[in-house]
Design a protein around this nucleic acid. Sequence first.
RNA 1: GACCCUAUCGUCUAGAGGCCUAGGACAGGAGGCUUUCAAUCUCCUAACAGGGGUUCGAAUCCCCUUAGGGUCGCCA
Length: 495
Amino acid sequence: MSENKEIRTRFAPSPTGYMHIGNLRTALFTYLIAKSQPNGKFILRIEDTDQTRKVDGAVDIIYNTLKNVKLFHDEGPDIGGPYGPYVQSERKEKGIYAEYAHKLVELGGAFYCFCNKDDEEEIDDASDVSSNEKAKFAKQNDPCRKISLDEAKKRIANGEKYVIRQKIPAGRTSFTDVVYGKIEVDNKTLDEGIMLKSDGFPTYNFANVIDDHLQNITHVVRGNEYLSSAPKYNILYKAFGWEPPVYIHLPPVMRDANHKLSKRNGDASFEDLVAKGYLPEAILNYIALLGWHPEGEQEIFSLDDLLKVFSIQRISPSAAIFDIEKLTWMNGVYIRALDLNSFNDLAMPYYKQVIHSNIDFLFLSKMLHDRVEVLGAIPEMIDFIDSLPENYDLELYTHKKMKTDKDISLKALQEAKSAFENINDSDWNDAKIHDVIMDLVAKLEWKNGQVFWPIRVALSGKQFTPGGAVEIANILGKTETLKRINLGIERLSNS
RNA sequence: GACCCUAUCGUCUAGAGGCCUAGGACAGGAGGCUUUCAAUCUCCUAACAGGGGUUCGAAUCCCCUUAGGGUCGCCA
């Protein structure tokens, strides 16, 4: 591998639905490996050779997700480039795969196979030896292997259906993966898999090698589920006389110790996380730490930071479990780092879900900013502003640490009521409300909490709220505050 | 079943044979601050899967066992 050659990596998803977190992490690492180098190029290629699995709109999800996390590609279907087309079905239309598949047969690296699917399935279903039989069939025991090239060509000319299978030579194959080191296998364990299907489409196993070579990909980054088939790809490169790329297989991202993150597990999709109120930057930062670790102890990294510190050598070979708790914490860090106006803008849609009156939203944001970890949690935190929870539990008035009970609370509310009534409408603000309550505390010779706590409960009907009595009273306004205090007095008197 | 890969606190991880009494972060616990909850600060709990080697010395190297993951599709 000549070192002055520019690094070219490709992210090559199949358009089959959601973009899950494991996928996104592969995209991130693929991007970083290329773009952390001076002239690196990050290419997007769509692998849609399985037309039956194609899902409408899936390509847009891929574009949108990459855009959302600012993983911009240098070449791809939407922006073109010198190695197009970048969609495999379009490349198939140009005859690229067929050309190379037939060439591979001529080179002795593949053969025509006329067995039809049903034959194989019969063998498969036949008896208890079936699986063994099937394995033998695939591993260098295909009867079609013996058909001469001339004979095969004749049968093809006669219109017989065929596939092209890879021919595995005897011996051993080894390659070196940057993450997993040297891997060597006996060729006997390798399958002579299908390269070109009977419908003329290539399989992944063939298309990825052809495209990676034709598109000059220097570093192949992919999940380690491909580690087992990598030797077959190497044999392919060898048969064509091509130089294999640098392999970088990534450890899996798991949902728990025994299960890989999958599209089935709804939470794992990038879109779902964003919908729940996770910031794209936080998600990206978090997944960067799954299977990779920087040299120091810093954990918060912008994409630009990552570009500076990323190194392939620090990718770990072992699986990582996706931990939503840590992501949540990190999301909080990102939210707190926002300036107040940005936070206000991001929070606004969530405010609107539960608040229909016109309040001082910026003041609300000031209260919430430091205590929100996930934006999606906002509605539940502030829904009491629009309407007091009906029949909230009166036990809330009893709080050991605050030294309050229902009797003290009743008295506190009654005192607060008259104190508040004496505040002029134009004086209704943070400082004034605070002073009035503190005066009350002094007058009663009580502890702060014995006055603050009952007021907060009466105003919110909740155990926890963003902000205390003063802030809530300020947001609610004088009229609504007094209304809720009156209701509290009424309910406490009748209990 | 065959082949490949992996194995440090509950979780993400640091650790390239002596810097390890194993470090950091999340989570958990205790406390400070505080009008609630947070934020923040201080402190604490908690791990080298097991067994053999190699070596003066092993979390680190080798082997075996165990556990887990992956591949074995006209899926990618």
